[in-house]
């Protein structure tokens, strides 16, 4: 690792840094200040000390929001990772039919979130949608099932993106490794677990970080699909923050929720990256097996 001398200087990163400070760090600092105030958007914020933070544990919807957010994050990871991993590896093959089918699979990537949410909303409409013709009961109106419906729609939207990551990564695996394995008599299943999966390790981590951090801030589809309902069954923390801030105009409390989200998101991604050794960016290409 003698890469230090080859690294570009800080000057290269300056424009991005300026941008990040202005649109990333500064707003976070302002929100942190607002979380210590009482403000409904009119006039100037009134200093409130830790009032909003003390009210946080007392808000059943915030606690429920944390629970729902974690559940949704888990669901998203559990659905999206295996599906996109398998699809990605499959579509990395060079057979002709795969290119055509892959194009079909990637289509949701081109649609806007709103279009996707509205389409699924009319499919799942309990009275006039596809769900009504297929049996009547609706996923979206049951407090126990709505979250699964939401996780499914999110997966439908994002699986293509993660598939793309896996496809690219799988194509980077040197074919010599598979040739060796074939000579040694390993079947396809064995090759997948012994070569493909270990070689995709960093991609799995990268994709997982994206899924986890993405799910933590996920918002638009839920707002359009269920509005957080039935009751508060799908009201994730970001949606609760939006409702507090832009429906109830309790900006102070909403800011406290926002700070909480930033903290949890940062913590989780650092945790994943550290625990998996991803931050060392070590390549395990070649020389394995």
């Amino acid at each position: 690792m003698s890469a230090r001398s080859q690294r570009p200087g800080f000057g290269w990163a300056a424009p991005a840094t300026v941008f990040f400070v202005a649109f990333g760090i500064l707003p976070i600092a302002i929100v942190a200040y607002l979380s210590l105030t009482r403000w409904n958007g009119l006039g100037s914020p009134e200093w409130a000390g830790l009032e909003n933070w003390r009210a946080l544990p007392d808000d059943p919807d915030a606690l429920n929001g944390i629970k729902v957010t974690f559940l949704l994050t888990l669901l998203c990871w559990l659905i999206q990772t295996p599906v996109s991993l398998l699809l990605g590896v499959w579509s990395a093959g060079r057979q002709r039919s795969r290119a055509i089918l892959s194009t079909v699979f990637f289509l949701p990537l081109l649609l806007s979130t709103t279009a996707i949410a509205l389409t699924w909303l009319s499919f799942l409409d309990p009275n006039f949608g596809l769900a009504a013709s297929l049996g009547g009961s609706s996923l979206l109106s049951s407090p126990h099932q709505a979250l699964y419906a939401v996780a499914f729609v999110i997966a439908w939207q994002f699986v293509p993106f993660h598939t793309l990551l896996y496809q690219a990564a799988a194509r980077q695996i040197p074919t010599s490794m598979y040739e060796d394995a074939e000579l040694a008599g390993a079947n396809t299943l064995r090759q997948f677990f012994a070569i493909t999966l270990p070689q995709l390790r960093n991609t799995i981590i990268a994709s997982s970080v994206l899924i986890v951090v993405g799910s933590l801030t996920y918002f638009e589809s839920i707002l359009l699909l269920t509005g957080g309902g039935p009751g508060t069954a799908t009201r994730v923390l970001p949606l609760h923050m939006y409702i507090k801030g832009f429906v109830g105009f309790d900006m102070g409390f909403a800011s406290a929720l926002a700070v909480l989200l930033v903290a949890v998101g940062t913590l989780l991604s650092v945790l994943i990256v550290r625990s998996t050794g991803y931050y060392r960016m070590a390549s395990d290409r070649e020389g394995f097996l």
Binding site: D125, P126, S137, S138, L140, S141, A146, P230
Partner: peptide, 11 residues
């Protein structure tokens, strides 16, 4: 009592 049916929460 069922005055609003089963699916009212998603209408």
């Amino acid at each position: 009592r069922g005055a609003f049916g089963k699916n009212f929460a998603s209408i």
